[in-house]
Design a protein around this nucleic acid. Structure first.
Length: 260
DNA sequence: ATGCCCGGAACGTCCGGA
């Protein structure tokens, strides 16, 4: 079972890339998408279904939007992260697939930190921790994957000093991410590559960041204990970031051992 | 310095069809 996450930065613009990714013989069984930047009804589901995948999405006009694409049927559990009924941003989709609970999430960026955007980010992370605690208490195998907009440590970005005060790096942001892990979740890439440094999943469009490898590692796959026991591989696939008219993010994937 | 690039929305212009 291969599960991937990819912030496509506009599903409409990136549809050819998505189809190319899904057509490859290395295609994932489950793909979590972020930043659809389109309404739910405008998701090009027929193009995706034609490749043998199921699609579920929660979108909105212009901003955000997440989706789950799967070879096996998807049973949606939640279309919003619980804990704030006034939050209408399309950032969370949780579903059951083949006995597995999976969530696609697009965690708020949080910049600029002196605005209400930063407390919104931290509040969203607290709600995510509450949700993870609930899933852990239910003792079910689950994966929370997506664009976390968090560089967990200083080796996860090219210029820690320059970015010190950024919402992706600040101590409060990292502490909130650690609280999530400390509930008992395993960040897949770090678990299998504990000494990896300067391996990224995002490169800004500006200032030749991709060419200079000035990146950030902000896309993560978090596993429940039962799934962490099944983790056999996790990699960042840099290839799609090099394609023409690429997203600024590239896919991160993991492979889970099949259970007997 | 705070843009650099890119996307969408809105708008403007051009083009093809009627």
């Amino acid at each position: 079972m291969k599960i991937a996450t990819w912030n496509v930065n506009s599903l409409k613009v990136r549809l050819p890339h998505l189809l190319r990714y899904l057509e490859a013989d290395t295609a994932p069984d489950i793909l979590l998408l972020q930043e659809l930047k389109c309404q739910t009804d405008d998701v090009p589901r027929a193009d995706i279904e034609a490749l043998g995948y199921h699609v579920e999405a929660v979108g909105q006009k212009t901003y955000h939007g997440v989706a789950i694409i799967s070879k096996q049927p998807i049973s949606v559990v939640l279309r919003h992260l619980p804990g704030d009924e006034t939050d209408e941003q399309a950032r969370y989709l949780e579903a059951d697939i083949a006995g597995l609970r999976v969530a696609a999430l697009y965690l708020p960026n949080g910049n600029p930190v002196e605005t209400e955007k930063y407390p919104y980010k931290l509040g969203w992370m607290a709600r995510l921790a509450d949700r993870a605690a609930t899933l852990l208490a239910e003792d079910r195998p689950f994966l929370l994957g997506g664009d976390y907009n968090i560089c967990p440590t200083d080796v996860d970005l090219y210029d820690p000093v320059g970015w010190r005060d950024d919402a992706l790096v600040r101590p409060e942001s990292r502490a909130a991410f650690r609280r999530l892990l400390n509930l008992g979740l395993t960040e897949a890439f770090h678990a299998l590559h504990p000494h990896a440094a300067h391996v990224y999943s995002f490169w800004d469009y500006q200032a030749g960041a991709w060419q200079r490898d000035n990146g950030l590692r902000i896309d993560h796959l978090l596993l429940s204990p039962a799934l962490a026991d099944r983790l056999e591989a996790c990699e960042i696939d840099k290839e799609p970031r090099g394609w023409e008219r690429a997203s600024d993010h590239t896919p991160v994937w993991c492979r889970l051992r099949e259970v007997a």
